[in-house]
Design a protein around this nucleic acid. Structure first.
Lengths: 242, 242
DNA sequence: CCAATCAGAATTGTCGACAATAGAAACGGC
DNA sequence: GCCGTTTCTATTGTCGACAATTCTGATTGG
């Protein structure tokens, strides 16, 4: 079969002969990533044509991706005015943490109730291994492992809706969590809490596990404020470096 | 005021002259409503051009609305195959109810902690009035009141994220809830549970209120199965009546 | 009779164009 | 000099068109 017309890809990554990744999903994922990392400044208006040019596509897939991100709360929208980056404020972080704490508690309880011994053992092993290698991970990688720990438990809960909601919260607090990870790293604080939670799960001690999980997540307003402050500094500094 | 000649428009509201409602939001709301009420059959493929014709718009706003509904879990999507109505199965209802129970518990607890006496009194009054008029309401109206009761509490919690998540769940279980309301009505079961919850809230008795709320929401798998069964019957009967 | 194959039809994915709206700049009256 | 108005520009909202893909169903070989 003959290769159909290639439309004007001059720079960027593309052009590797094969193009297995559909533009729609690719664009969505790319913009999502940008929003998660606050590559748009808080409340910044997002110019569709500029973004389209940047990603080498037309406005249609851009708009569809943005609309989708609107319901994910990563982007906001005003009719006839367009799309904006979400804000970045303390209240939101605190409120999301509150919801998250409740859901994660339920998550561990269900996981303890439903997961097999093998699954729980695998969780402990995986985290132990992760801890052993912790120093070799970048902050981004470590953050990803942190997120994965919680997601794994959510999966073990056997309730996909619960897992999905927690993933949604995760994407929204990804940025602050990354900052927290770096803060921890600076202070050389080890992640003993995850280990303790996993141990309580293996022991099928639901109350202890739930309590540990709650305390692990619960963020004081003071902590949130300092983290958000550091986040703001980072946003307005790192920008334009790429 | 004289009404200028309306040319052609056979069905729908149409065209120019007075058009205060933007098509984008209108289309979104309309499709959303259809999805909530299962006007699309479960897992049915949604034809974009047909839907566009039905709503007298082009495919662009249709697709944008659908994409948005995808992340609301009211619609599913497969690349190159298009959009589908979500399924309709017992597991989902059970899982959502589980999550909902947890969130609603948190909701009442926070509301008890943060709402003023006046706000709680207003809640009681409003529900008492609603009950008094219950017989004059249609099932749809009664369902809306039921939903509003819970949403009001969520708002009183002072945590907008919590409220938003509960609203998301509500739209997804709207259909089964409506069937439950009708079931209740057939059996002449009165809604005493809401009143009891509200009373416990006024008394600032968090544990009691939380327990009542949990029991109110918790759905046994058997109940869910019968409700879903009735829902399926309704879906495949009422269709085409409009 | 069934399975695989292959055209034709239907549907989705993406684009560029144009109209409608909002935003910015220039203007003028006070 | 300042505020409201007007004009011009930038951006969004929607559309129709075409390419790419999937679906349908008829055909053929076993």
């Amino acid at each position: 079969m003959l290769r159909p017309t290639r439309h004007s890809n001059q720079d960027d990554d593309a052009a590797l002969a094969s193009k297995p990744i559909k533009t729609g999903p690719r664009v969505y994922e790319e913009i999502r990533r940008m929003a998660m990392d606050y590559r748009f400044k808080p409340n910044e208006r997002i110019n569709e044509v500029a973004l389209a040019a940047r990603l080498n596509v037309s406005r249609s897939p851009i708009r569809e991706a943005l609309q989708r991100l609107v319901t994910e709360e990563l982007i906001t929208f005003q009719t006839n005015r367009g799309f904006f980056c979400r804000g970045f404020d303390v209240d939101e972080v605190v409120n999301l943490s509150d919801v998250r704490a409740v859901l994660e508690e339920r998550s561990v309880r269900l996981a303890i109730q439903r997961a097999t011994n093998e699954e729980l053992a695998a969780l402990v092993d995986w985290w132990t291994l992760t801890m052993a290698r912790a120093d070799s991970f970048s902050s981004a990688e470590l953050t990803a492992r942190d997120e994965e720990f919680h997601i794994r438990i959510a999966r073990l809960s056997g309730n996909p809706e619960l897992a999905r909601m927690l993933e949604g919260i995760n994407t929204r607090i990804h940025f602050v969590r990354k900052i927290e990870v770096e803060k921890h790293r600076r202070l050389s604080t080890t992640y003993t809490e995850h280990s303790e939670i996993a141990r309580a799960m293996v022991a099928r001690d639901a109350d202890t596990a739930a309590r540990l999980m709650h305390d692990h997540i619960d963020i004081s307003v003071a902590d949130a404020m300092s983290t958000v402050r550091e986040g703001l500094a980072r946003i307005y500094v790192d920008v334009d470096q790429i």
